[in-house]
Design a protein around this nucleic acid. Structure first.
Lengths: 228, 228
DNA sequence: CGAATCTTTGAAAGACGTCAACATTGGTGG
DNA sequence: CCACCAATGTTGACGTCTTTCAAAGATTCG
C-alpha cells in the first residue's frame, strides 16, 4: 500500500517517458511540473463523474483507474482501465460538454492534475503534445469501433477472452485484480454469467484463479476464442 | 438521381457552413477549393476500406455514407451514417494506422477529396480547423462510449428505438431509407429479429412502414423506449 | 469474532439467433 | 411496356445463450 501524498515531480516521474508529454524538453518539463499538482487517491475514490464539467486533466503517476459510463438502470459499463502514465479526462477539454464517463480508482493511486487553461496553453505552444493528443484520440476512436462491434456480434465467452487479453496488457506481469462485478461490467454481462464462464476457462486450463486474482495461463487459447 | 461529375466549388457548396471548414475566410476557402478534387460515387460504391492506408480525407458534399467495421464472421457493424457536410476518414490522418472501418455510399453521392499532406498543412496553419477537429474527435469518442454501453446493456428493442432516433436526425425531414440488413447491422442484431421488432413498432403506431422506407410517427414513445 | 461484502451455485424463464421456406420488390432485357 | 429473375424482405419453428431471482458459501476487515 502506498503512502499518502507522495510527492512526485515530472522530472523524476517513472511514467514520464510513456506519457503524452514524453517529447517535452527540459525547460518544458519543469514548466509542466510547475503547473501540476499531485494528490493521493484511495482505492474506490472518484476522480471525476459523468455529468460534471471538467476543470482540467489528470495524469496517472501510479495506480489504476476504471473509466466507465453509467447506463439507464445505473449499471456501470467499463470502457477502459487506465494505468501509470495515462492521461485521463482530456477528451472533455475540447468538446465543451460535461463528462460522458466517470473515473474511479481501482487501487490506491497517485494522480497529478493540470488545470484546463494551463493544459490548453501547453497544447497551443507545443506541437508534439498536440500531435500526441490527436493521435491518442484517433487510436481510442478506432478501439471503440472495435469494442462496439465486439459487443454487438460476439458471445459473452468471446468477449471475456477479449477482455482478459486487454487486461493482461494493463496488468503486465501482475495478475489481474478486479472484482467479479467490475470484470462483468467490462465484458458487458451479468456477474453470475461471468463467474460461470471463468469456471469454464479455469477447467480448460486457460486461466488460474487465486481467489480474486486471475492469472492467464494460455494466451493462445484466449486469442483463438477472442478471434484475433 | 444526381448527374455524374457535378462540379462543386467550396465557395458554392451548400454544406460548407455546417462543415469542419466553416470558419475559413475567403482566401482560405479558395485555397481549400484549389486543393480538393470532387468525384461522383454511385450507390453502394466503396470510399475506403478497413485495412487500407489512407491518402487523404473525404468531404461529403451530397449523399449518405455508412461507416462500418467488419466483425470476424464478416458481418458489418455500422458505427455511423455520415451525410452532407460531414468529413470522413480524418481519424486515420493522425493515428498512423490503416483504416479500422470501411465507408460505402448508401445513395448516389458527390464527395470531395483532400490529400493527406494538404489537409495536415491546413491543420498546421489554421487553429480553427484544429479546434474543430479536436472537438469532433472528442464528441465522437463520447458518443461511442454511449454506444458501447447501449450495446452491452440494452435489449434489441431499446437499441432499435435509439437507432431510429439517430436516423431521424440523419434523414431530417425525409423518411429513413436503409435496407433491413443495414438497419439490423446498425442496431446490432439479426435481420429477422429486426423485422419482427419493426412490425411491433408498426402495430404500436410508433412508425409507419412504406415498403423499404420508414416514417417515424411517435418520437416520444421512441424516446421512452430508448430511455433518454 | 462477526458483520458486511463479495462470490458461487441452482433453477427457471425469456430474449435472441439460426435455419428453412416463402413472398415481394425492383431492375433488366426482350 | 411487360415479364422475369435475382435480391431483398417476411414468417414460423426451434434451440440455446443469457439473464434473473433466490439462497448459500467465502472472504475481508474492523
Amino acid at each position: 500500500m502506498k503512502e499518502h501524498h507522495k510527492h512526485v515531480t515530472c522530472e523524476n516521474c517513472m511514467s514520464f517517458k510513456e506519457s503524452m508529454f514524453s517529447s517535452f524538453q527540459n525547460g518544458q518539463i519543469s514548466e509542466l511540473n510547475h503547473h501540476k499538482s499531485c494528490s493521493f487517491y484511495k482505492k474506490g475514490q472518484a476522480i471525476f463523474a459523468q455529468g460534471n464539467y471538467p476543470r482540467g486533466v489528470f495524469c496517472l503517476n501510479e495506480g489504476k483507474v476504471k473509466i466507465f459510463s453509467i447506463g439507464e438502470e445505473g449499471k456501470e459499463q467499463i470502457i477502459q482501465i487506465a494505468s501509470s502514465g495515462d492521461l485521463i479526462g482530456f477528451r472533455t477539454m475540447f468538446s465543451g460538454e460535461p463528462y460522458k464517463v466517470s473515473a474511479v480508482t481501482l487501487e490506491d493511486s497517485n494522480i497529478c492534475f493540470i488545470a484546463k487553461e494551463d493544459f490548453l496553453n501547453l497544447m497551443d505552444v507545443n506541437q508534439n503534445l498536440r500531435n500526441n493528443i490527436l493521435k491518442e484520440l484517433s487510436l481510442e476512436l478506432g478501439e471503440r469501433a472495435k469494442m462496439i462491434t465486439n459487443m454487438a456480434q460476439k458471445s459473452v465467452k468471446d468477449r471475456l477472452a477479449f477482455t482478459l487479453l486487454i487486461l493482461d496488457k494493463v496488468y503486465k506481469q501482475e495478475q489481474i485484480n478486479l472484482s467479479r462485478e467490475d470484470l462483468a461490467n467490462f465484458v458487458g454481462t451479468a456477474t453470475e454469467t461471468l463467474i460461470r464462464l471463468l469456471k469454464e476457462f479455469k477447467d480448460k486450463q486457460v486461466i488460474k484463479i487465486h481467489t480474486r486474482k486471475i492469472e492467464i495461463l494460455d494466451k493462445k487459447k484466449l486469442l483463438a476464442l477472442a478471434g484475433i
